[in-house]
């Protein structure tokens, strides 16, 4: 599996360049034009990204999440969901880097092949960081009115996390 993912990118690059040659395109010129657009994109994303990192990190550092977790514990106990997975499930849509850290801690404490370890792996693998994706893509276009995008994105995350728990129970 790993070997495949190592050769995919070089093959894509080779394919793009060869096809450009075949169509007798000035590929160097085209590359430079695109590269400049890449620079502009990064420039456009920058303020939005800083704004989001700023707010999210203040929120995370206040440990308000820990406060909320206290209320959710009985619910999780009732549903017989392991409590250790709770921070991960809540933070997944907000911050990808912090859930990676949490997943790694779970691996250290319970082992990657424990039920919690597997569940954490599935949750990490099944959804992306909604806030990051929305910030990045809408920010690059300076779109401020996002309508129902975040609502639907969070709902998808919820579906993924619930499904992860059910599927982990069926598989392991």
């Amino acid at each position: 599996m790993n070997k495949i993912s190592i050769i995919i990118i070089p093959i894509i690059v080779l394919g793009i360049v060869m096809y450009g040659y075949k169509k007798k395109l000035n590929i160097y010129d085209a590359f430079l034009t695109g590269a400049k657009e890449g620079l502009v994109s990064a420039f456009n994303i920058f303020p939005t990204l800083i704004a989001m990192v700023f707010a999210i990190n203040i929120f995370l550092k206040s440990n308000f999440i820990g406060f909320i977790l206290g209320f959710l514990k009985p619910v999780f106990k009732f549903l017989s969901i392991p409590l250790d997975i709770l921070p991960m499930a809540i933070l997944r849509p907000i911050s990808g880097s912090s859930t990676l850290v949490i997943m790694n801690n779970l691996f250290e404490n319970f082992g990657p092949d424990s039920f919690v370890g597997r569940l954490a792996s599935i949750i990490q693998g099944c959804t992306d960081t909604t806030f990051y994706v929305m910030t990045l893509y809408f920010g690059s276009l300076k779109i401020l009115k996002t309508r129902y995008a975040i609502k639907v994105g969070l709902f998808a995350d919820l579906c993924g996390i619930v499904a992860a728990f059910i599927i982990a129970n069926l598989f392991f």
Partner: peptide
């Protein structure tokens, strides 16, 4: 992110103009 964006957007321009 910057270097990745610059390189891939360059490559994608080739893919776009060549019709791929």
């Amino acid at each position: 992110m910057l270097p990745i964006l610059v390189i891939w957007m360059g490559l994608m321009k080739i893919a776009e103009e060549s019709g791929l």
